[in-house]
Computed example of a mutant assay.
Amino acid sequence: MDFLSQHIEALIFCAQKPIKLADIQSCLTEMFETEVPEKDIVKSLEGIMEKYNNDTFPFEVTKIGGGYQFLTKPAYQASIGILLKQQSKKRLSTSALETLSIIAYKQPVTKSEIEQIRGVNCDYSVQKLLEKELIEIKGKSDAVGRPLLYGSSERFMDYFGINDLKDLPSPRDFAPQENVNEVVEKENPTSDTE
């Protein structure tokens, strides 16, 4: 493995969130005091990804959240599942997930708009999502009182393993299920004359 690849690996390893190609290039350019071509970085990244694709490693470099990050491989899901179960107190509540879903699909959105959709106060959920850095303040609305506008953060994409908001399932993918009685009637039509 070449010298450049080792520096790139170190940057990916030390980054607390997926590191973007531009950030890798910026760090390397400052370190080497000359611009490192993007094509050289991409070539090194491909080599690194191929290296960790080998079965001897329990982790790999994955492109996620618009950047690169070390992640464990699916084969180690059981042991990681135990760890995650033990850390389950950090999971999102149903109300937080509902609030986050509304923000992700409607962004930028005000708290009052979220509350209109959910039908309940969402102060606590919004606060928790801000603390977990899954949402961020995107500005202020032009509406009366200039309420804050909320949107998803880069950490949101990392948390859910997507690269872009376009990767979210379409709302039409969540078609409501037919009423059970309607299905039964379609399968067993009866006449009122019987």
Rank of each mutant, 00 (worst) to 15 (best):
Y150I: 06
K166A: 07
Q87S: 08
A15C: 06
P171R: 01
Y76R: 01
L129D: 01
L168M: 15
I12V: 05
E115F: 13
Y76W: 05
V120I: 10
K39T: 14
A75M: 12
L92Y: 03
G67L: 14
F160D: 01
L134Y: 12
E133P: 00
T72S: 02
E185N: 01
E38M: 04
E98M: 13
Q77A: 05
I135C: 03
S93V: 00
L45N: 00
Q69N: 10
K17N: 15
E60G: 12
I19L: 10
E38W: 02
V42E: 14
K17C: 07
R118S: 15
I41E: 11
E50F: 10
M31V: 14
L129T: 01
E30C: 14
C27Q: 10
V184E: 13
L130E: 15
P58H: 10
K186M: 09
P108G: 06
H7S: 14
P18W: 11
N188S: 09
I137G: 15
S44E: 10
D23M: 05
S5W: 01
N163E: 14
L4W: 15
T190W: 08
L21H: 11
I103P: 04
S5K: 13
R118N: 13
K73S: 13
L97H: 10
I135G: 08
K20H: 01
L21G: 15
Q86C: 08
S5M: 05
A96Y: 06
S44H: 02
V180H: 15
T190G: 07
C14D: 05
Y105H: 08
G139C: 05
Y76I: 07
L92P: 11
L84F: 12
F70R: 06
D164W: 01
D167L: 06
S26V: 04
A96V: 01
N121W: 02
